[in-house]
Write a protein that binds this DNA or RNA. Structure first.
Lengths: 185, 185
DNA sequence: GCCCGGTTGTTGATTTTTCAACAGAGGGCT
DNA sequence: AGCCCTCTGTTGAAAAATCAACAACCGGGC
């Protein structure tokens, strides 16, 4: 709607993420964030309840961006598309600074659960659109893939990306390949 | 005062200068400028009478920036300080795209006169603070140096900077040196 | 010719942002 | 303890940016 709200939100979020790479989250004041964003302190409170809400929304926003960037065609889920998988790992590689900070800081648990929520939704929708092996319970299958996927991503990031994205994709794909053979009737 | 006016002005000016390097000034519409600046069209008219006024203020702003960047200690004028001279040429080298566009476009005359005005003011102040040779008329001396300085700068820019800044500085300094010997009592 | 589309510059109502001020909480220092 | 300073979250009035609409203009195409 109004360009101002988008501009302010973005400026504040960008400022916050910039500060995240320099300072500790807890030692950050709303004043500093507002100043870095070149925005009045009151404006921050106009968009976010407090800095914790800001942190939450930042993470949610980032994950949404990851989803949009890495799975352009809606319905095609990363965990079952090799090209989408490739895009995902490459995206994380490019935005490594943000994600590694998020996973190392206190936000770890929140961030992880948000990633799971996002992936769960899109994966769940995908499994509805294909015929799953009748022996497999959907909820359990979803949880299995999400835990595996998010776990590998988290491991890769927190361990400073010891292998390039391409290797990660190949390895992950190999594992996926074996399971998929048994998934469909 | 209000951060909004600074932010809007800057966004519009930056957008304008970005477009200047792509399109012809005359074929530019206010709509395009506003869109590039991510600002409502009405906001442009809030700060600038029309796109010609915008052009004027852009040039004035750029020249002011050049002055601020190249002569940090006030009172020390570029034309009589080798380091300031060096800074000036290097600054122009770095911002070549803007200045060459400005000098090639219709704004040439306006731009040139604005540069002269700026240099005249600071040079005039400087000459007041030193004891000039009594035989030299101040106004004429000022005009002499300004014409020489701006002329050389303009020549250098419009000829696509055929020599690096360092060579220009050395050459210019040599000429200046000979004159200065006779300037002071 | 005439009409169509886009541009210009302006208007007024609405929304957002700014600013200054506020009270309250908390931390550090004497 | 008290004092000082800073941060927090909120308020209301003022300033600005936004949006939609306007009349007027221009240029190209039918």
């Amino acid at each position: 709607m109004d360009r101002r709200i988008q501009k302010s939100r973005q400026a504040i979020m960008n400022a916050f993420m910039r500060l995240m790479s320099e300072k500790d989250f807890e030692s950050m004041t709303v004043n500093q964030i507002a100043e870095e964003a070149n925005v009045n302190r009151g404006t921050v409170y106009l968009h976010f309840a407090d800095k914790y809400d800001l942190l939450d929304q930042c993470m949610e926003d980032q994950i949404n961006q990851l989803l949009r960037n890495c799975m352009p065609e809606e319905g095609v889920v990363h965990l079952t598309s090799k090209t989408a998988l490739q895009r995902t790992f490459e995206y994380l590689e490019q935005h490594a600074s943000f994600y590694s900070i998020m996973l190392k800081s206190k936000g770890n648990a929140v961030f992880r659960s948000q990633m799971e929520t996002m992936f769960r939704q899109s994966l769940s929708e995908h499994l509805d659109s294909i015929n799953l092996d009748r022996k497999l319970n959907k909820d359990i299958t979803v949880q299995f893939f999400i835990s595996a996927g998010v776990g590998v991503l988290e491991w890769w990031i927190t361990h400073s990306m010891p292998y390039p994205a391409s290797v990660m994709v190949e390895q992950y794909w190999n594992l996926l390949d074996r399971i998929q053979l048994q998934m469909f009737e």
